[in-house]
């Protein structure tokens, strides 16, 4: 075919997609540079796009990290992400293995019990009342247990298990391996790609989750970090705003950050972990979409 010259359409296409990418990235650039700016730099100009910091200080991050509940917030978020993902993978892969066996008695009934939950639920208040009756309100374990089993993820794992040839299990059995050994030493190692995919999926869900913390948790020191960020930036909570202003001192020094820089730093600290792992994990997610699309 040889090299084709760039047509008018190509030029338009490259330009359009470049603008598209820049508009996806700009909010991040804006936040980073806002979080690094000093109040003197910020207020010295009427207008700035924040393609670079106006002045430079890391004080906004220091101020944010010294605010109340920031450490407990990250503690809760990290706890639920780690414990929630591990527990969820153990419970789901076990059940997925059982459901992948055609000879399991009443297989159809059990599978249906899981499938129904993909299409119908009790809703907000019945779930809330259940948690209250279980005595799980204001308990961090609710954040771990609430999203533990997802029927859709479970079926994706099951489908993968079904694709593993039965002969592998049989030959392991002939070698004297028992049920447990076959599951942990044959099935799980072969299924690492799908388990890693679902695990990352659950981990990101946990890291981002906020609504369950908002409605089920009362104690400030048990909330996940997103709830505190929400209070600081979205609700513009008076107590948090006061704390933020007070931390800057009564006389604002030139090299100190402005309140909006601290809010930007707060958002950045929650995004940074995702930005760091993103390059490594995004192909897993893309693959996951495919697996899910092939057969739900």
């Amino acid at each position: 075919m040889g090299k084709q010259r760039l047509s008018l359409f190509d030029i338009f296409n490259y330009a359009a997609l470049t603008i598209f990418c820049l508009s996806i990235l700009y909010p991040f650039v804006y936040l980073i540079n806002m979080s690094l700016s000093t109040s003197a730099g910020l207020y010295s100009r009427d207008f700035a796009l924040f393609l670079w910091p106006e002045g430079f200080t890391l004080e906004a991050y220091r101020k944010f990290l010294s605010m109340n509940y920031v450490y407990s917030g990250y503690g809760s978020t990290i706890f639920r992400t780690v414990a929630g993902t591990v527990l969820s993978l153990i419970v789901m892969s076990g059940a997925a293995y059982a459901l992948s066996k055609k000879y399991l008695p009443h297989l159809k009934i059990y599978t249906t019990i899981f499938v129904i939950t993909m299409f119908f639920g009790g809703g907000l208040i019945p779930s809330y009342l259940l948690m209250r009756n279980l005595g799980l309100l204001d308990n961090v374990w609710i954040l771990v247990l609430g999203p533990m089993v997802n029927a859709f993820y479970l079926l994706i794992i099951r489908n993968f298990f079904m694709s593993i040839p039965e002969e592998l299990e049989e030959s392991a059995r002939l070698d004297g391996a028992g049920d447990i050994k076959i599951f942990t030493h044959v099935i799980i190692p072969l299924s690492l790609p799908v388990i890693a995919t679902i695990g990352l999926w659950q981990a990101v869900n946990h890291w981002n989750a906020w609504f369950d913390s908002l409605i089920y948790i009362n104690s400030m020191d048990k909330h996940v970090i997103s709830v505190h960020i929400r209070r600081l930036v979205i609700e513009q909570n008076a107590a948090m705003n006061d704390q933020l202003i007070n931390s800057l001192g009564s006389v604002q020094k030139k090299d100190m950050p402005a309140p909006e820089s601290i809010r930007a730093a707060a958002i950045m600290v929650t995004i940074i972990p995702i930005l760091c792992v993103y390059p490594f994990i995004q192909r897993f997610f893309v693959r996951g979409v495919m697996v899910g699309a092939v057969k739900g």
Binding site: V91, G94, A95, A98, F114, G121, G122, L129, L130
Partner: peptide
């Protein structure tokens, strides 16, 4: 292996349906 996930479903998904 099935039991924990099944118990979870009945408690966390079906009990609210009753609710």
């Amino acid at each position: 292996l099935l039991l924990p996930a099944l118990a979870y479903m009945i408690i966390f998904n079906y009990a609210p349906m009753y609710g």
